[in-house]
Design a binder for these strands. Structure first.
Lengths: 126, 126
DNA sequence: ATATGACTTAGACTTAGCTCTAAGTCAAGC
DNA sequence: GCTTGACTTAGAGCTAAGTCTAAGTCATAT
């Protein structure tokens, strides 16, 4: 699979894919005799995982650490689990904060819809 | 209330508070005769709101637009509601993505805890 | 055989959101 | 009256994560 196809498949850009490879998040991807990347199944799975985690805001540095530990083998299982647990906890906190803001936005929108404009003046409400 | 007290109250830095003021997100905050900021109740409510929205990832530019519309008065009510709805929808999408990543992290952690290490090799699983 | 268009590289540039620095003012304590 | 420490300013610097540029290679269509 070419870089263009992969980029389209996952909604990334060619640049981003090469960037991820450069920083060691994926690959190194096999290249044909004229130096053109040909992504295989394992590459695609890794990219899909990375994309999911990146879109949730996990830092590249952390993801790199994880894939590095993975490559180091079974000895790093404990450290990997710890890393995942830490990231999960951080993510949970972020989700909570976002839900709070979400509720608050909805409250405000409700006030607009009900024309309760006085309530909006108290910016701190709810 | 001094900048230091406000910063501590909300878990921000003095720099961030001055930065928010500089870009027009808050204030301008009243200053005493020797030029030192003294935050009032309205300032605090605004800061609390901004902090909540910022911690959910709403861009400063968007928040500035909102507070500017607010200051322009009742004519902008429709535009304000639209802005809030747009941001709510964007936020909803982000929350969904984060929940997806959250579930996936938990699945992986579960595999680690149950020592089902083969499953981890399929990075794309679930 | 030459032009086109997709790929390659290294490295410079961009953006958002702070964060830090330098130089200065001022009130309070010694 | 001098020092200390908290504040002030303008503006430079930083970090993360891309994004873009320039120069080059290569396979294919004309």
């Amino acid at each position: 699979m070419t870089i263009k196809e992969v980029a389209e498949k996952f909604g990334l850009t060619n640049d981003t894919l090469r960037y991820y490879e450069k920083v060691g998040l994926i690959g190194p991807v096999k290249k044909n005799k004229s130096g053109i990347r040909d992504y295989n199944e394992a590459d695609l799975k890794r990219i899909e995982f990375i994309k999911c985690m990146r879109s949730a805001g996990l830092p590249i540095e952390v993801l790199k650490k994880y894939v590095d530990l993975f490559d180091e083998g079974a000895d790093t299982v404990g450290e990997r689990r710890k890393l995942l647990e830490d990231q999960r906890d951080i993510l949970k906190e972020k989700i909570d904060k976002m839900n709070e803001a979400y509720d608050r936005l909805n409250y405000k929108i409700k006030m607009y819809n009900e024309n309760k404009l006085e309530d909006l003046l108290k910016e701190g409400k709810q």
